[in-house]
């Protein structure tokens, strides 16, 4: 199956920066900003909510990259 629908080239450098930023947010020192049991929001301790929140941002970001490359 050829990739006929692809509209734009993969912005490799931008993607690499995006991936590294998300990675750094999960690691210390940046994870230190989220590393606290309190407050408990939406049933999750803040230290877990931080991880889940950035995973959500990562998901949205990946969709944005895909839509940029394939249009729509």
């Amino acid at each position: 199956m050829p990739d006929i629908e692809k509209k734009r080239k993969t912005p490799e450098k931008v993607y690499a920066v995006f991936a590294i930023v998300i990675l750094l947010l999960m690691m210390f020192p940046l994870y230190g900003l989220g590393n606290s049991a309190q407050p408990i929001i939406m049933g999750l301790p803040f230290s877990l909510l931080w991880v889940v929140f950035w995973i959500g941002v990562e998901f949205a970001g990946l969709i944005a990259f895909f839509r940029y490359e394939y249009g729509r």
Binding site: M27, F28, Y31, G32, N35, S36, A37, Q38, I40, G43, L44, P45, S47, L48
Partner: peptide
């Protein structure tokens, strides 16, 4: 989680007193 946080301070955090993993090990 409120109960765990009250009973076991640090258990839901990384590298603090009561935590089971250091910050470098985790990262």
């Amino acid at each position: 989680f409120a109960q765990i946080a009250a009973d076991r301070p640090g258990f839901l955090e990384i590298g603090h007193e009561g935590s089971k993993m250091s910050q470098t090990a985790y990262s």
